[in-house]
């Protein structure tokens, strides 16, 4: 089934269309390499440019502006075959607060490449939250390649959530590098349901340079069929009192799915502490039995367990 409009795709991915069309809500809508709409609001400056088959986006949140309501972004490709390249700079200035809610939709993809280069600077004592939901259609014939260099300045806070639960994934390769300065806090969470021949690689590296900087790198995955995941996380503890934790939980189903988790701990300061845990396995039989003892079928029980992990 072909999805006709970006609004429709946005809606399927869980977005509220009203937020893309209201003058009072900051938003940006992109289809392929075209800006469909950009609505800046006071304190949040959005600049865009398209050249050489690439989109350039600058988003600046001015110092002291603190938004309680999220700004909405929609990056979509409606064509079955296309390449979307986005080069994005995000800068949150001192003492600002912003939450971005992004939906990336490629509902009709047969051969689509979505490539993003992001540089994100989270200013001193500012708070930045990025909640990204993807929908790649039911077969997921998409290559998604986002690279991000993120810096958290002194006292900055970052909460980044990535979710791809509906439909298939396709081929996805994340590569995020995060530098955390003094007293900054970073929490990265990825939730993905891989199926068919999905190929998912996530590489996240947090360098805790600053004193009392904190990072949590968290991944929750469910994979089945011939899907494969390769989750590489690394935290480097450099600053006094730096604290980091990596947590990867994966449910694997079937004989041909493949899951690999590699948490890497590097500590170069005896006042820093980094920990990790990783668990990969089939659906827990105790949990299955608990739910089946309430009259649920094995499939219904499995669905609840999977949804709970990806919630």
């Amino acid at each position: 089934m072909t999805i006709g409009t970006i609004d429709e795709a946005y809606s399927i991915a869980g977005g509220n269309i009203h937020s893309l069309h209201s003058k009072n809500i900051g938003s940006l809508v992109i289809d392929e390499n075209k800006i469909l709409s950009a609505n800046a609001i006071e304190g949040a400056v959005i600049e865009t440019d398209a050249r050489d088959g690439e989109l350039f986006v600058n988003l600046t949140v001015k110092a002291g502006y603190r938004f309680d309501d999220p700004l909405h972004l929609c990056f979509g490709v409606m064509s079955p075959e296309a390449t979307q390249r986005i080069n994005i700079n995000i800068n949150t200035e001192e003492n600002s607060k912003v939450s971005l809610r992004a939906h990336c939709v490629f509902p009709n993809a047969v051969d689509v490449l979505h490539a993003m280069e992001a540089r994100i600077n989270i200013g001193p004592n500012s708070e930045y939250s990025y909640d990204e939901t993807h929908y790649h259609g039911e077969r997921g014939q998409v290559r998604v390649v986002p690279n991000a260099k993120i810096t958290l300045e002194d006292g900055a806070r970052l909460y980044n959530s990535f979710s791809l639960i509906q439909g298939a994934v396709g081929n996805m390769k994340f590569d995020y590098d995060i530098d955390c300065l003094d007293n900054s806090v970073c929490h990265m969470l990825a939730k993905v349901y891989g199926k068919f021949d999905d190929d998912i690689t996530i590489r996240e590296r947090a360098r805790l340079k600053g004193a009392n900087s904190h990072a949590i790198l968290e991944a929750r995955m469910v994979i089945r069929d011939n899907a494969r995941t390769d989750i590489y996380t690394e935290i480097i503890g450099e600053g006094d009192g730096a604290r980091g934790h990596m947590d990867c939980t994966e449910i694997i189903s079937g004989k041909t799915a493949y899951a690999k988790a590699t948490p890497v701990v590097v500590v170069v300061n005896d006042k820093a502490k980094i920990t990790h845990e990783a668990a990969i396995g089939s659906i827990d039989s105790d949990q299955l039995n608990l739910l089946m003892s309430r009259g649920l079928s094995p499939d219904q029980a499995t669905e609840i367990i999977v949804n709970g992990l990806l919630k």
Partner: peptide
């Protein structure tokens, strides 16, 4: 059940 079983979420 006697024992506590946790289903995440």
């Amino acid at each position: 059940w006697q024992k506590n079983i946790t289903v995440q979420g």
